[in-house]
Design a protein around this nucleic acid. Structure first.
Lengths: 342, 342
DNA sequence: ATTAGCACTCACCTTAATAGAGTGCTAACA
DNA sequence: TGTTAGCACTCTATTAAGGTGAGTGCTAAT
């Protein structure tokens, strides 16, 4: 059954109103508030249809209607108008600050904070996935008699520069040779693969070098291992208390407990899905515990490649239009800031 | 008025029982459960005295007694027996893992997680205070034509090694000269002071160097600024939901909101105080929002100097004896692990 | 000094009564 | 035939009332 325009209009009004008020919407108040040009009775008839089709539901018999997950889905796909907010300048202004951060970590943390501030929901920022990123260059250099430095640069702009103690008989020249060798071998390869190779078959090939190399390689290997994946920055978790759907203690608890399980969150967000924005509404989330929530995710990029995600999570009664607008702006600014850095 | 032994005994029983049950303790159940050898009526008389002295109080007229903050204080100072738990081996076992972490950050995060796991409260670990630590050595080295490396080593074992782009005409020799100069000038000085000097009066003195130096110094300065203070690792914040004193939504909210204010938390913890453990009970906390909580803090060390703190925060009805035991063991293990690393 | 006895207090739980918002259905209307 | 007014009905939320029980303070006996 195809929904006619009037049903669409009514659904839109219901969603809009419920997003704002969190109260079940009745036919009478709907008719009054939105000048739909039809009487409450007519609305009631249409509502009965919409309910039968699963787009709205009643919390209990004598209450108004609230949108179902399916209703939100229709709204998001067809009815919603993205709000180009007047905040735009405010966001731009604030995010100018983004550029001042040298350390990627701080920048991500700050981004997350801004996101939750602008939306009043909980925000999640997923750092570039280190182990999936590709090696751009390895440098090895002596610092002094006892120590050397390794620099790993990846295509996602991540730089790691661990320092090792090495035996003095390993000369700078030799280090350079090793570096050349490693570069030849590994540039363009995902870090996780390099890790495997270093651990495995490669050992024989390294025999050609000075024996002191064997003291260095395990350290290098360990450094790679340590480039920890999946930095995850949360902000505004306590915003959840602002929403009546979480005024039940156990609901709030479940949500906050979920937010502590970084593994699960990252799964929810990186979960593949096309399009510029990925929106998961309530029961669409595969994780049981997240089925009272909606998640809107945008990606950010380097070298035209997706390297990480920005995400907002809140009740299914979420102001999707606003959230998408904010995410859109923020992700663009992230891209910009990351380009400036490299 | 000095409390006689019997009052002490009763207070101890009340605190012990209340810590376990979270229910106001009545005279009858007290007499039955603890074999005090006196009748409920006698206990009631003593209780009336204890209440008058402010060590216990009644939530309402016809309820049992609960300890006041003052009562907990007396308990902590004089009555409590530290529990040497059977967990000891378990803790030791698990914390063997600590040594495997190369990155200080990860180790601290893990320590925090263990603390909250062992205590079932919320744990806070404060990273070594970078800016308060003293410079042990600066190294500067060229890596290649375009880049140089700076290494800052502090007495707290913290190492920072930022990489800069520098003009090619700045030679390695010159870098060494600068490093020598800076070392002479700054070794032994707290980082925050160095920061100030670099920003201020020092500029003229640097004129003696090649003009390319002036391109480097601002970068060095910026790097120092970036050595961000006050890394703070939280764990087990949602444990708060296990305690009936936070079953009021607004109480839980206040607590969790407080936990998001890292500035405030760090203030609560670093707040000076002698002794091996610092215990702040309820209203003893200066921060309004923390006055429903108790905080137990231990320090950890490098070179026999306190460099950071381990902390457990929970309801005033906290199992102080157990928490102190765990903190004691964990801080010792931290000290050990940090010694092994350096 | 200690204890048994007893009247009293107050939170908590259950039940009942009431008000109010919103529905579905029917019948009238354009 | 689609729309609307009217009305009985349903169900939640709120308030009030009564009962229960744990625990106290006081008094008098030991």
């Amino acid at each position: 059954m195809k929904l006619n325009d009037r049903k669409m209009m009514i659904l839109q009004a219901i969603v809009t109103d419920y997003i704002e008020s969190a109260e079940p919407v009745g036919s009478r108040s709907l008719s009054k508030k939105y000048n739909l040009g039809i009487s409450p009775a007519t609305i009631r008839n249409e509502m009965a249809d919409l309910e039968e089709l699963g787009f709205i539901k009643q919390p209990h018999t004598s209450a108004g209607r609230i949108p179902s997950d399916k209703g939100y889905r229709l709204y998001v796909d067809q009815l919603m108008k993205i709000k180009k907010t007047a905040d735009k300048n405010r966001i731009r202004l604030k995010t100018e600050l983004l550029r001042q951060y040298n350390e990627l970590e701080q920048m991500l943390q700050y981004t997350s904070k801004l996101l939750s501030e602008f939306t009043n929901y909980t925000s999640i920022v997923l750092a570039p996935q280190v182990k999936k990123s590709r090696l751009k260059e390895i440098k090895l250099a002596r610092i002094d008699k006892e120590n050397m430095l390794a620099v790993f640069v990846t295509n996602t702009g991540l730089i790691q520069n661990p320092i090792f103690r090495v035996p003095p008989e390993l000369t700078g020249d030799e280090l350079e040779k090793i570096a050349n060798f490693l570069n030849e071998k590994f540039v363009g390869m995902p870090l996780e693969e390099i890790e495997n190779r270093l651990a495995g078959t490669l050992k024989e090939e390294l025999e050609i070098f000075h024996s002191a190399v064997h003291a260095v390689m395990p350290e290098l290997f360990h450094a790679l291992e340590q480039m920890s994946d999946m930095g995850l920055y949360l902000s505004g978790t306590t915003n959840i208390f602002n929403f009546p759907e979480f005024s039940d203690l156990s609901k709030a608890r479940d949500f906050l407990t979920l937010m502590e399980e970084k593994q699960v969150i990252s799964q929810l967000i990186t979960d593949p899905g096309g399009g510029q924005f990925k929106i998961s509404i309530g029961s669409e989330n595969l994780i049981q515990k997240a089925q009272d929530c909606s998640i809107v995710t945008a990606s950010y990029h380097m070298d035209n490649q997706t390297v990480g995600w920005l995400s907002v999570i809140g009740p299914t009664r979420m102001d999707y239009a606003h959230v998408i607008d904010v995410l859109d702006q923020m992700s663009q600014l992230m891209d910009q800031a990351l380009k400036d850095k490299s």
